[in-house]
């Protein structure tokens, strides 16, 4: 037994090192004084962060990305609430195939989604814009939101709704007084996950970007210039901490939801 658990500890140790290598190196290089991204480290500086503050193009890209991410979060959560509610509460004709189809973007290669949306937009004679990217992002985020919200709706005891109805409330009020407060943590988690995915999405955004870049498209353009790399590291560090912060908030709400409905906490994220 002992030998086996030692093997496991080593394995997990190496695995975590492998998994975290980029995430650890990112802030290391962001604070490294050298303008070349490589070892050995030469000293500590916050210069690369201050470079970010004065970069106009970057600010435009960041604003675009925020706009897209917020819109995506709201719309994919809305669509996911409807789908999750429908699939967990009602049995309807073709439910399994409809849900399978709606969840399809989760396994579809992103390049296929990018290509197909590009084709439609060009064939229809529309201009590529931030809207086209938003549409693509809603499409890929909705399945993730459905996954989160389905478990929130599934944990909901059907007799709670019936009890509310039985006690004289209307269906509409039942939704707002009983269902909504109980799935609220799931909705917050869904909003944050969609926001985070959209903020970081590159493949679709690159295909559908018109003249206005998103943050990842901007980063892609800068990767060619070695001189820009240290400040990109700083940008990456900021984004990493923003993402982790948002995820911690999402997880907090998910746990609170679990506590509220009184169900044992077993699952993990997503």
């Amino acid at each position: 037994m002992r030998g086996k658990s030692r093997f496991f500890n080593w394995f997990i140790g190496f695995f975590l090192l492998f998994l975290y290598a980029p995430a650890i190196l990112l802030p290391v290089f962001a604070f490294n004084a050298s303008s070349i991204v490589s070892f050995p480290l030469t000293g500590f500086t916050t210069e690369w962060f201050s470079v970010l503050l004065t970069n106009g193009t970057l600010h435009v890209a960041a604003r675009n990305s925020l706009l897209i991410a917020i819109t995506t979060a709201i719309f994919s959560t809305l669509l996911a609430v409807l789908a999750a509610r429908a699939s967990t509460r009602f049995s309807f004709f073709g439910r399994r195939s409809i849900m399978g189809f709606v969840m399809l973007p989760m396994v579809l290669p992103e390049i296929i989604i990018g290509v197909s949306l590009l084709v439609v937009i060009i064939q229809m004679g529309f201009e590529l814009s931030l809207w086209s990217i938003t549409m693509g992002h809603i499409l890929i985020c909705t399945p993730f939101c459905i996954a989160i919200l389905s478990s929130a709706f599934m944990n909901l005891d059907k007799s709670l709704e019936e009890a509310s109805f039985d006690l004289g409330q209307t269906r509409w009020n039942t939704f707002w007084l009983v269902i909504f407060p109980l799935v609220m943590p799931g909705i917050v988690a869904s909003l944050l996950i969609a926001f985070t995915i959209s903020l970081d999405e590159f493949i679709i955004a690159f295909f559908l970007a018109g003249t206005e870049p998103t943050l990842p498209v901007y980063i892609w353009g800068q990767l060619r210039f070695p001189a820009k790399l240290p400040s990109l590291m700083a940008l990456g560090t900021v984004l990493l901490f923003v993402s982790i912060g948002l995820l911690l908030i999402a997880d907090y709400f998910r746990r609170r939801g679990i506590r509220k409905t009184g169900i044992e906490n077993t699952g993990g994220f997503l």
Partner: peptide
């Protein structure tokens, strides 16, 4: 949660 964190490092980075 620990396993999923590195995934949220910017994809390109």
């Amino acid at each position: 949660f620990l396993i999923t964190i590195p995934f949220w490092t910017s994809y390109l980075m």
